[in-house]
Design a binder for these strands. Structure first.
Length: 289
DNA sequence: CTCCAGGCGCCTT
DNA sequence: AAGGCGCATGGA
C-alpha cells in the first residue's frame, strides 16, 4: 500500500476529461470553474485536467487509488481503440470532432438505475432526477471545501425501502415504479448484479432484461458504461438518427432490427466506443446548429 | 402554446 | 414479428 494522499495525478494523454464526464454516460458530475466533482466509489472526488493528465483530489487521504484509475479507465490506449474503428467518412469525422473522448467504468447499480430514469428524458433532466434521489436517499459523504453537502448514489436496498410516492416526489414520473421494481429485484437477488461483469455480454443482457423498465437500449448502456462489454452498442434516438443519416441515407425504409444487425457487424470489437463517438459527434453538431 | 426528450410495456394487427 | 400508443415531467 502506498502512502495515503488526498491528491493524485494520473499521467494520461489523449484524454478529454470534460467531453468524457459530460457525454451522457454519467449524470452526477458537476463543473465549477475547471474542476469537476462527484461521488465515486463512496468518496467525494474532484478532477481537473492539467498538462500532465488528470489531477484528482479526495476529502480523506487514500493509499490505493485503483478505484479511480479503474473508473477513469486511465490504462486504456485510446489510439489503439480508435484504430479499430471502420475507416469510413462518418467515423473519421466523429473521431476528428471528439479527440480524447473515453468510456468510464461506472458502478453497475448506479449506472443501471440512472438509465432507468433516462427513458424519454433529456440529459439535463436525467441529471436532475438523479440528484434528487441522491439527496433524498443517498448516504452523505464527507466533502471538503465550500461545495456544500454531497450524497452517494442510493443503493438498491435503500431504494427498495422507498415508496412509489416518495420516488414520484423526486419527479420520476412513470419511471418511479420501474426504479422501485428493479431496486427490489436487485436487492432480493432476483437479478444478481455482482457477477454480471463475468458472465458474458449476451448472458448479462438477458439478466438485465428481467428488470422492469429495462429494455434493450438501457441494458446495453449498463453493459457498456459499467460492465466493460465494449462491443455493446446502445441505439437511442441520436444513434438511430446518426445511422440513418450517415449510413442509410439512400434507403427509404430502415427498420430498428436492421440497424441493430448493422451496428453489431460494422463497428468492430470496440463498437461501444464507436457508438459513444457517434453520439457525442451528433450532439455537438446539433449544438452548433 | 406545441413539440419532444440517451424508451419501455402493452396492446393491436 | 411488427407497428402504434400512453406514460409524467419539463426544457426548448
Amino acid at each position: 500500500m502506498n502512502r495515503a494522499t488526498s491528491r493524485k495525478t494520473f499521467a494520461v494523454s489523449e484524454y478529454d476529461l470534460a467531453a468524457t464526464l459530460d457525454s451522457g454516460q454519467a449524470f452526477r458530475w458537476e463543473k465549477t470553474g475547471d474542476v469537476w466533482a462527484a461521488v465515486v466509489d463512496g468518496r467525494w472526488t474532484t478532477l481537473r485536467q492539467t498538462e500532465d493528465g488528470i489531477e484528482a483530489r479526495v476529502a480523506k487521504p487514500v493509499g490505493d487509488w485503483s478505484w479511480l484509475a479503474d473508473y477513469l479507465q486511465v490504462h486504456v490506449d485510446i489510439s489503439e481503440v480508435v484504430a479499430t474503428f471502420p475507416n469510413d467518412d462518418p467515423m473519421r469525422a466523429a473521431v476528428q470532432e471528439c479527440k480524447g473522448l473515453r468510456l468510464l467504468r461506472q458502478d453497475v447499480w448506479e449506472c443501471l438505475a440512472s438509465f432507468i430514469l433516462s427513458s424519454n428524458k433529456q440529459i439535463l433532466q436525467i441529471r436532475q432526477m438523479a440528484a434528487r434521489i441522491c439527496e433524498r436517499f443517498g448516504e452523505e459523504v464527507e466533502c471538503a471545501g465550500a461545495q456544500g453537502r454531497a450524497f452517494a448514489f442510493p443503493s438498491a436496498s435503500r431504494l427498495a425501502r422507498a415508496s412509489e410516492k416518495e420516488l414520484r416526489e423526486c419527479r420520476l414520473g412513470y419511471r418511479a415504479p420501474y426504479l422501485l421494481g428493479s431496486s427490489r429485484m436487485v436487492s432480493e437477488g432476483a437479478v444478481d448484479l455482482t457477477r454480471i461483469r463475468e458472465i458474458g455480454c449476451d448472458a448479462a443482457r438477458d439478466e438485465l432484461l428481467k428488470l422492469p423498465g429495462v429494455g434493450r437500449k438501457i441494458a446495453d448502456c449498463a453493459l457498456l458504461f459499467s460492465c466493460g462489454y465494449q462491443d455493446a452498442f446502445p441505439i437511442d434516438v441520436w444513434i438511430m438518427k446518426a445511422l440513418k443519416e450517415l449510413y442509410f441515407a439512400r434507403k427509404r425504409k430502415v427498420t430498428p432490427k436492421r440497424l441493430q444487425v448493422f451496428s453489431q457487424s460494422h463497428f468492430g470489437p470496440y463498437g461501444g466506443y464507436a457508438q459513444q463517438y457517434l453520439f457525442h459527434y451528433m450532439r455537438k453538431r446539433a449544438g452548433r446548429a
